[in-house]
Amino acid sequence: MVHDISLTTLLLLCLAAAAAGWIDAVVGGGGLLQLPALLVALPHVPAAHVLGTNKAVAICGTSAAAVSYVRGAKLDLRTAVRIGVAALGGSLAGAFFAAGIDSAVLRPLIMGVLLAVLAFLLLRPSFGTAKGSAAPVTRRRVLVAILVAGLGIGFYDGLIGPGTGTFLVIALAGILHMDLVAASGTAKIVNVCTNVGALVTFSLHGSVLWQVAAPMALCNLTGGAFGARMALKRGSGFVRGVLVVVVVSLVCKLGYDQWGG
């Protein structure tokens, strides 16, 4: 299906994968770059194969970033895994309903949420920059995180997807009072769970172009590991700055898809 892809095109895809891995590791939203790059580079490939290849690449960078965060940050792994399992179920449910949903209807709603998030970040410059409390969070907040960040955002990931990692970071920081570094690390663990479910589904249907995914995955993995280490080294203020840039980029992309495409 992609036997005639040029070496130059493959190299550009690998660069996009590395950059996407870095963005995704710091604050989420790497798919904003990687998926459009695949769509442009493989215009005659069925959409399912592009999405499957994207997931095969993304899971490598997400996993590398998750490992880096687990080693370098104090994460509540038990809570992260519980949210991740809920997100896996939510993403499967979202994928089930995706065929009957018009994304053109959803985009304005998502843009509204993103604009509200952007306003919140600009009006609350201290959000997510303070160190999280050492005391364990209440069971009620953990339950809310499982429902919102797990089932809710997981459902959104299966339904449409763009900005899932960014939404996870914001939700985890807000609900569980995490600083943005801890929220990013926890979000990576949750993302691994959702990506596993999606990749298994695409693989069973033969919708992964492994000859393209393999070299891209190596670059995505490198970018993910580097981005996680940079976030750990520079702290929550750096993550917050990248978060604002990614949210603005998501708004612009969704607006273009809705009215300019």
Rank of each mutant, 00 (worst) to 15 (best):
A37Q: 03
G185D: 03
R140C: 13
C219A: 15
C60R: 05
L109T: 08
D157K: 05
K55C: 04
V26K: 05
V45I: 14
L32R: 03
G30A: 08
V212Q: 04
G28Q: 08
F97R: 01
S207K: 12
V26T: 08
V239G: 07
L35H: 07
T138M: 04
V105W: 12
L38Y: 13
V50G: 01
L32N: 00
L118Y: 08
L121W: 11
F202H: 12
L143K: 09
G241K: 12
A25T: 06
A183D: 03
M216F: 08
N54Y: 06
S103A: 14
L13W: 02
V242Q: 02
G197N: 04
L250V: 13
V239C: 11
I110D: 00
M1P: 11
V251L: 12
G29T: 07
P136V: 09
L13Q: 01
R78K: 15
R229F: 04
L176K: 06
G150E: 05
F238Q: 09
V70R: 07
G224I: 01
R141A: 09
V50R: 05
L106H: 02
K74L: 12
V190I: 15
V239D: 03
A171N: 10
V148H: 03
K55A: 05
A41P: 07
I59V: 11
A116L: 15
L151Y: 04
A66L: 01
V246T: 09
L176V: 09
F127L: 08
Y256Q: 11
L7W: 13
L106C: 10
K131C: 04
L199Y: 05
A87Q: 02
L151I: 13
V2L: 10
G90D: 09
A130G: 14
L122V: 12
A145I: 04
G29F: 02
A228N: 00
L147N: 06
G165N: 06
V244C: 11
F202C: 09
V208F: 06
A225K: 01
L121F: 12
P108D: 06
N54I: 06
T129A: 08
L12V: 13
L92G: 07
I23L: 14
R107V: 14
Y256I: 11
W210G: 01
C252S: 14
Y156S: 00
T166H: 07
V70E: 00
D179R: 11
A87M: 03
F120M: 11
K253D: 09
V117I: 15
A17V: 01
A171R: 07
L218D: 01
